[in-house]
Amino acid sequence: MSTKNVMIVGVGGQGSLLASKLLGRLLLDEGYDVKVSEVHGMSQRGGSVVTYVRYGEHVYSPVIDKGEADVIVSFELLEAARWLPFLKKDGQIVTNIQQIDPMPVITGAMEYPTELVDKMKATGAKVDALDCLALAEEAGSAKAVNIVLMGRLSHYFDMPEEAWMKAMEAIVPAKFLEMNKKAFELGKNA
């Protein structure tokens, strides 16, 4: 198979590292060669952050380039639009509809763009948008947004749910496991 590309994007501090850890574990367990590229350091201070997950028979580059992503998973709506140029033609976006104002919007220098979901769809991208924060809170913690998104992402992966659960058991601390499993189901069935 050719290498598949999944990007996880969001705002520094939103918990995307756990999502990439889960995905990496799942793919390794399923027998793929995997590379995951993360961002550390200054960008983590509330900046735009991106994680690249690549898998296949043999993965060379650790990064995903413009026009290469099969799926973009976004923790925040504006970030989905920012990274859209990295999506393949007919690629899939899975995004949280939560909006976090960046500094140019906070200072009033710019407006937060409106109707981004429709505008992204108009480019031909397939967009699956859901309110992950509400679902995470329903599961028991606002911090479970990442697992809600992973549940939704599972629709676009041809892998049995047991494999996801096995990876989750390996990654998530036991005391949060039930809550996260619920978050996964809520995301999956949203």
Partner: peptide, 19 residues
Amino acid sequence: SEDVTAVNDQIPMRPPVMC
């Protein structure tokens, strides 16, 4: 040649900030 899609809106930058 790169073949990319984008929305027409200008996307505000999100630089790192003091927490």
